[in-house]
Design a binder for these strands. Structure first.
Lengths: 235, 235
DNA sequence: CGCTTCTTTGAATTTCGTCAAAAGGCGTGG
DNA sequence: CCACGCCTTTTGACGAAATTCAAAGAAGCG
């Protein structure tokens, strides 16, 4: 368990969870955080685990997936630097509702329920921040529900791509590159389709020069066209 | 604007939003609430409206629907007595993300942003309650995402029905009756299918004596069989 | 009683998932 | 350095579930 060295309070300042907090609060939060370095493709927690903690990615990325009682699974979301995850469980079930797996070597911070509750009691702004974060995710989830219920696979993949670009896109000379390693399978699980359909769609777009894909790394070349596909009701 | 008479503090005690609060808090909340009686099929707010307030149903029921930039819409959820709605908007956009329409004559209470924030500052438990409520809805939304992405229409309708029964089901001698007036169209918009498919499925179930439907009122006769349909991976 | 709204049902069409198989990449170990 | 194996991606063919189109039947309401 490594602490201060890897966890300067400034790191926390960048996180939505600790926005608008006095430096003293960041200090306290940094002190009681558990920081871990996790190799690629390792599990951080499993669906159903108790012993819940509030997590945040410092560096790297994590895939959150949910499985049904049948085997079927979907990607709930990807978590990048400065984003929190696994926190809702603290307030509701006391059990993680999903799996968390690293997509790359990742540094992750976490707080126990007690510690977070203590922090929240002392700095109520944290509770507001939690509401903000969860509220935003609720709206995103509801958007996805609407998309899945009403749109065709191609539009859903386009929306998924745009969401990812918004969340973790970096502009380069070649276009917007998405900061997570993404398999076709992942994209399919976000968009709610099969990897076959996702592959066909992406291949089509690649041929139309809307994007390029190398080694699980996507670069969007023509955002406006993807946007058109995502929004265009006709066709 | 009618107040105390229609809004005894005990009414608030039953609401998740005001759980675990001292009587004084309920008193204060009751005092600054705006209570309105709204006829059937009236709009309480529209998607995109600003001037957001936190709402709760005292009596009656409300349908929350979201429309995309294309016309397509889904039912986000139904709101029954003692449930809150339209509250997330206070913390995020300051714009309602959905429409709210009464399904029957409804008594509704609401609080302005200022009033709720003041209440929250004084009674931090309210913030915790908000997190709990939103957290639960987030999990529900994520369940729906998984269902829509992986399950066939029949299973989704079964799940939708079970969710409604859990939320607003009353046991009677005939079975569990769902406390909202439900058109086929509504059920379709919850389950993410067309009213045609929903109608076919319900007609099938009615023939199989799993449920009865009269005048937009559903009664589930054989919950366990519906549950089997909802869970059974094969077929 | 007529109108509007909701529901049912049939038939044609289409999207998408399923099955199957091959090709491409990447790392490891010989 | 090459070969092998594993994982990912691509592609084709087929079939089934569900939407779409169309129209008629019911039921409640004024």
């Amino acid at each position: 368990m490594i602490r201060d060295a890897q966890m300067p309070p400034q790191t926390l300042a960048a996180m939505d969870l600790f926005r608008e907090l006095p430096p003293a609060a960041l200090e306290t939060a940094a002190t009681c955080a558990r920081v871990r370095r996790v190799p690629k493709d390792m599990c951080i927690f499993n669906q159903g685990d108790d012993n819940v903690r509030a997590h945040a990615v410092i560096e790297g990325s994590v895939r959150i997936t949910q499985s049904g009682s049948d085997g079927a699974q979907v990607v709930i979301r990807f978590i990048g630097p400065a984003e929190m995850f696994g926190t809702v469980a603290l307030f509701t079930d006391k059990r993680y509702p999903a799996d968390a797996i690293t997509l790359a070597e990742t540094t992750e911070a976490s707080w126990s329920e007690d510690e977070l509750m203590r922090l929240m009691a002392r700095y109520p702004q944290i509770a507001i921040n939690v509401i903000l974060i969860i509220g935003k995710r609720l709206q995103e989830a509801q958007d996805r529900v609407r998309e899945l219920a009403t749109q065709r696979a191609e539009r859903r993949v386009a929306h998924a791509l745009l969401r990812l670009a918004r969340q973790a896109g970096h502009s380069t000379v070649d276009g917007t590159v998405i900061g997570f390693p993404l398999r076709r399978r992942d994209l399919a699980d976000i968009a709610g389709t099969t990897l076959h359909t996702a592959s066909r769609i992406l291949t089509g777009w690649e041929k139309a020069r809307l994007l390029t894909s190398h080694n699980q790394h996507l670069t969007i070349r023509d955002t406006s066209e993807i946007l058109r596909i995502a929004e265009n009701a006709t066709d």
